[in-house]
Simulated assay, not measured.
Amino acid sequence: MTALGFLYPGHSAEDDYPRIEQLLSSDIRLDLVHTDIGEDAHRVDALRATGSPERLAAGLEQLRLSGAEAVVWACTSGSFAHGWEGAHEQVRGLARAAGMPASSTSFGFVHALREIEVRRVAVAATYPDDVAELFAGFLRAGGTEVTGVRGAGIVTAAEVGAWGEREVLALARSADTPDAEALLLPGTALHTVAHIPALEKELGKPVLTANQVTAWEALRLTDRRVNAPQLGALFTREPVVQV
């Protein structure tokens, strides 16, 4: 059994994780602990506070007791809001406090793009424009070319969590550009896992979403590869065969 640990801020789209678990191998368990979101606002100061070391450390003991082998901070904005170097320091501190490999959703996007060998992406974010641009800047720092950024201007995770397939598809269509090799939907407050097949069919390209890449990043940390077509192009590569 491979146990994967996630620190998830507040309550919005956490039900994506049981759905992911059902689509993965039966010997993989996803353990999720909720952290204190503080002020529910997609504003840079509030986002940095959401990902503070104190708030992240508060959930680690429960994950250790669950037997988690790796932990991912399941929050895109609460990691990239610290900048490229600050986000690295955040996960280094998380790994030290947890005593296990650690990462964040923001780095999950960067590593997933390298996995599928994509360099040019469009960003469809529910965030206000200034926060969406911070994510684009984070991607650029990781070596990705951003062909376009569309922000939906939503301030709270609670509102994002109420979106359904119609709103997600509309945002994706509006943000996609012809020269983008993939479309990215950041924001772990957004329900996307059930919509990935429809998104990729509609756009005709890989679609990476926050909760999807968060789970993939935890698998990467534990050296697991899983073929799960319903989770999109990121999960359709053949799993590594252990000899």
Rank of each mutant, 00 (worst) to 15 (best):
T2E: 13
F6C: 04
Y8H: 07
S12A: 15
E14L: 14
P18K: 00
I20R: 11
R29F: 12
V33Q: 10
V33S: 06
T35H: 01
G38M: 05
V44N: 09
A46C: 12
L47S: 00
G51M: 01
A58S: 15
E61D: 15
L63K: 07
L63V: 13
L65H: 15
G67L: 07
E69C: 05
V71A: 05
T76N: 06
S77A: 15
G78Y: 00
G78C: 01
S79I: 03
S79T: 08
F80V: 09
H82Q: 09
G83S: 01
E85C: 06
Q90G: 01
V91Y: 12
A95V: 03
A97C: 03
G99L: 02
G99F: 07
M100R: 02
P101A: 10
S104I: 06
S106K: 02
F107P: 09
L113H: 01
R114Q: 10
E115M: 10
R119S: 15
A124H: 03
A125D: 00
Y127T: 01
P128N: 11
L134W: 00
R140W: 04
G142V: 00
G142R: 03
E145K: 09
V146E: 00
G148I: 03
V149Q: 02
G153P: 01
I154L: 14
A158I: 10
A158G: 11
E159P: 00
A162M: 11
L169A: 10
A170Q: 14
A170W: 01
A170E: 15
L171Q: 12
T177C: 02
P178F: 09
D179V: 09
A180F: 00
A180Q: 02
L185M: 05
H191N: 11
H195I: 12
E202K: 03
E202T: 12
L203C: 07
K205M: 07
L208S: 03
A210G: 07
A210I: 11
Q212K: 01
V213A: 01
A215E: 05
L219C: 11
A228C: 01
Q230H: 14
L231V: 04
G232L: 05
G232W: 00
A233H: 12
L234T: 05
R237N: 13
R237L: 14
E238C: 10
V241T: 15
V243C: 13
